[in-house]
Computed example of a mutant assay.
Amino acid sequence: MVGKRKQFINTCPSLIVETYVPKNNFYRQIKQLLHLDFLYQAVAPYYGKCGQKSIEPVVFFKLQLVAHFENICSERALIENSQLRLDILYFVCRQIELDN
């Protein structure tokens, strides 16, 4: 099943992480240029209608980009590396819009 997951500030604190990622960071610049919202519609026919939700297509694609840029061949190493680096975490997480 494809779709956007509801995110809370505690699950992906991209607004907080953003303050720690330098303005000239590679992943920050890519995030500003890369718009992947079209992927939800493009991959929708390939996802089932029932069962557990899978990883978001945009997040999956961004993780594959990180693996390419960082020359990581193992998915476990990719996840471990992504959890440890704030710039990658900022790049992979969707921007959370807060209602004031």
Rank of each mutant, 00 (worst) to 15 (best):
M1Y: 07
M1E: 05
V2P: 06
G3F: 06
K4A: 08
I9Q: 13
I9K: 11
I9D: 13
N10C: 09
N10F: 15
P13G: 15
S14R: 06
S14W: 04
I16W: 07
V21Q: 06
P22R: 09
K23Q: 14
N24R: 10
N25G: 00
Y27I: 00
Q29A: 05
I30L: 15
K31V: 02
Q32C: 06
L34C: 07
H35A: 08
L36H: 05
L36P: 00
D37W: 03
A42H: 09
Y47F: 14
Y47K: 04
K49V: 05
K49Q: 13
C50K: 15
G51V: 06
Q52I: 09
I55M: 14
E56T: 00
E56S: 05
P57K: 01
V59A: 04
V59R: 04
F60H: 02
F61K: 00
K62C: 00
K62G: 01
A67P: 00
F69L: 14
E70F: 04
N71W: 05
S74W: 04
R76A: 09
R76C: 07
L78D: 10
I79M: 15
N81R: 15
S82V: 15
L84K: 15
L84A: 15
L84V: 07
R85Y: 05
R85H: 12
D87A: 03
I88T: 03
Y90I: 01
N100G: 07
